[in-house]
Design a protein around this nucleic acid. Sequence first.
DNA 1: TAGATTGTTAATCGATTAACAATC
DNA 2: TAGATTGTTAATCGATTAACAATC
Lengths: 244, 244
Amino acid sequence: MTERTPTEAARDIPEATVARLPVYLRALTSLAESGTPTCSSEELASAAGVNSAKLRKDLSYLGSYGTRGVGYDVEYLRYQIAREIGVTHDWPVVIVGIGNLGHALANFSGFRSRGFRVVALLDADPGRHSEQVAGIDVRPFRDLATIVAEQGVAIGVISTPAHAAQDVADAMVAAGITSILNFAPQVLSVPEGVDVRKVDLSIELQILAYHQQRKASAVEGAVLHAPGDAGGADDLDGRLEAPA
Amino acid sequence: MTERTPTEAARDIPEATVARLPVYLRALTSLAESGTPTCSSEELASAAGVNSAKLRKDLSYLGSYGTRGVGYDVEYLRYQIAREIGVTHDWPVVIVGIGNLGHALANFSGFRSRGFRVVALLDADPGRHSEQVAGIDVRPFRDLATIVAEQGVAIGVISTPAHAAQDVADAMVAAGITSILNFAPQVLSVPEGVDVRKVDLSIELQILAYHQQRKASAVEGAVLHAPGDAGGADDLDGRLEAPA
DNA sequence: TAGATTGTTAATCGATTAACAATC
DNA sequence: TAGATTGTTAATCGATTAACAATC
């Protein structure tokens, strides 16, 4: 079942490109706010932190929205990308798990400005149901299905502890949610047709640590920035490879 | 200057593999905690949410840590991966920007258990310097260089508003930090040799929205989960492509 | 027209995957 | 030895990049 309707098949945008469209959108919004009416692929690429060949290739999947010899109309291109992503209208979103991270997410102002609207905050802990966060009442987790149905919610955010995440995901899927953003450090299993993206703080830090370790061991002999306590030049064995 | 020392050149692990090692590490930790002494590539792959061919290929870059016909010793492989990533020792980390997100990050328990230790919380706002967050004093941003030098900090986390992020990054680089995790929705420019990874909530949501939109338009005619207010069947034009 | 810049081509590079020989 | 499972090969797939023809 990889078949799609003809209308869709016409535009098969590579995943890597899809992941960059929001970056271009932000760069264009920023250019528009600073009053720039047009820009070249070179300028936009630089604002987005990619090279211009990649940018032009990416945009070519959407259509021909530039003018040769001139560049792109910032406002026009911004709208075309927003439309392609699907953020010309707000998406209603629910957040489940209103701990520290849930608080931060609920207060995140970038939601509203970038195509999303938090319609409900849910938590299984009755102790939190008296609270208001970012002006929104925290409601019981069991209200999920009702809220999803009433508000037409398609996107759910999970910011619970790891051990609760799969149950929350199951409930979301049962309620009709088909896109999940998961902040819990837990691999989720969901039926086909449901998209899950994960944001994982400690994974990102570990990727940095890997590269950092290589930088440190490149300066062999002079051990700079050794991890561990300031006093600890001990215990370094095992981190550096044995000399040949 | 792509030359490396001979010791390093021996092990050139693809970036995609590096990004998955922390996932394997977590799966192994979880298996170890549940008392599982050994596992096959099939079992570990399933726990990590990848297919077993990819897992074995990934592990082959580290060495031969399994036993044919038997599988992997969970504890042994866990240690080998931790060593490869560089998290057999804690890395001291500073967090700059103690707003809602900074609070959540400071309180994040996964830091300690996964190879990181928050040694300082910094904020430019004097109003926050009286606070304690997660048992750590919030200190003035200008103390950055001193703290980095004293504690041997190599990794910095930016959780400021977008407009402050570049200045913070510049100060981090000047202080000697060479790995940055950026939560601010802002493209950072840093000198060569400094690694930046970004975590961007609204980008992740927009990627989900893109796919969600396609799912919705696949059910043409019956418009389910239309974004926008519950009452709004208006304003749908522009989101669906014109029929052929 | 001359200069500038897009959109596209084609080559290269890196990642994924299935299959299976090696070997416990 | 027979069965199981790794580590590796090779084919395929997708992403990146430079170069340039098209064209404003």
